[in-house]
């Protein structure tokens, strides 16, 4: 009756060989292609190094002015602008400026990369149902698989450093923008699309003149989510050698430094809130045309 009480298993030796086979073949793959892949990401690495140095080298008042300018352009709200500047002043006063700049650098690059890859993917998904059926489960895996699991092959392949960190962040942060771009385009009013078609619009004119503009609120919700998720990955990314606010948090965890962990954690929260509010306000302003009522 052991059949009923014990689930059939593969057998110890077979299972060990099975796992070993996977490990060996991946190691071989790393050995053969690791350098090619590293070279492929080289320009990205150079850009990240340059951008981080730029942020660190720039005098802090200039950074504050840029932050204030971006907040104002995004949100058109004095409150938010003043709040953002104040938050950065406090961060600097508590000596977290350099780590914060490093984090801002990787989040910005990760977000740009996610937008650059994610929006075209979303457009492709909206255009073809087959692409949607293939990409959706991949996104599901990327969002649900524990981050540590994909850190292993990423580190095996690229070692420790900025690029693997960036990839880890992007794997986790890209799904919302892809999904929401797809959704936004699919939700565009069919009547409006038919009108564009009836007036002889070609594919580009429909995509850039109608679909993307009308999907922008959703796309922006995706960008916002992507930024939030990228920030959530800061601590995990620091485990594989990304500088920034995650490093002191990690140190605080292993040494039980409460204050250090709290301050750096709160700095991450402050960044998240500023990014979130500014991008949300900007997204809202994109929808001004939806406001009805006769102002005649």
């Amino acid at each position: 009756m052991s059949f009923l009480t014990e689930i059939p298993t593969m057998g110890r030796t077979d299972l060990r060989d099975f796992k070993k086979g996977i490990d060996d073949s991946f190691r071989e793959f790393t050995f053969n292609y690791g350098e090619v892949i590293e070279n492929f990401f080289e320009p990205l690495l150079q850009f990240m190094i340059w951008f981080e140095r730029l942020l660190l080298a720039a005098p802090w008042p200039i950074i504050l002015i840029v932050i204030a300018g971006l907040s104002w352009l995004g949100s058109r709200s004095w409150k938010l602008t003043v709040g953002a500047v104040a938050a950065f002043l406090v961060i600097g006063y508590l000596d977290m400026w350099e780590d914060t700049m490093a984090t801002v650098a990787i989040i910005s690059v990760a977000t740009l990369l996610c937008i650059g890859v994610g929006i075209p993917l979303g457009v492709l998904m909206a255009r073809s149902n087959r692409a949607q059926t293939i990409i959706t489960p991949v996104l599901d895996v990327m969002q649900t698989i524990p981050s540590f699991v994909y850190l292993i092959p990423v580190v095996m392949l690229l070692g420790i450093g900025k690029v693997p960190g960036l990839l880890a962040v992007c794997i986790y942060a890209i799904p919302p923008i892809v999904r929401l771009t797809n959704l936004g385009i699919r939700l565009v009013d069919r009547d409006v699309m038919e009108a564009a078609e009836a007036f002889g619009a070609d594919y580009r004119q429909k995509l850039f003149g109608v679909q993307i503009p009308l999907a922008l609120p959703n796309i922006f919700a995706g960008v916002n989510q992507t930024i939030m998720m990228a920030l959530a990955m800061v601590v995990i990314a620091s485990m594989i050698g990304v500088k920034g606010l995650g490093v002191p948090v990690l140190r605080a965890i292993s040494n039980q430094y409460l204050a250090l962990g709290l301050l750096n954690g709160l700095a991450i929260v402050a960044l998240a809130i500023i990014f979130d509010r500014v991008s949300q306000q900007y997204g809202k302003r994109l929808q001004r045309h939806r406001e009805g009522g006769h102002n005649v």
Partner: peptide, 23 residues
């Protein structure tokens, strides 16, 4: 040819207007 036909020879008015809401 069809695009050209739609652009220059036949224009359409729709029941639900189908205007571009963002323009």
């Amino acid at each position: 040819q069809l695009r050209d036909f739609r652009r220059k020879k036949a224009s359409m008015v729709f029941q639900k207007f189908a205007l571009l809401p963002h323009r």
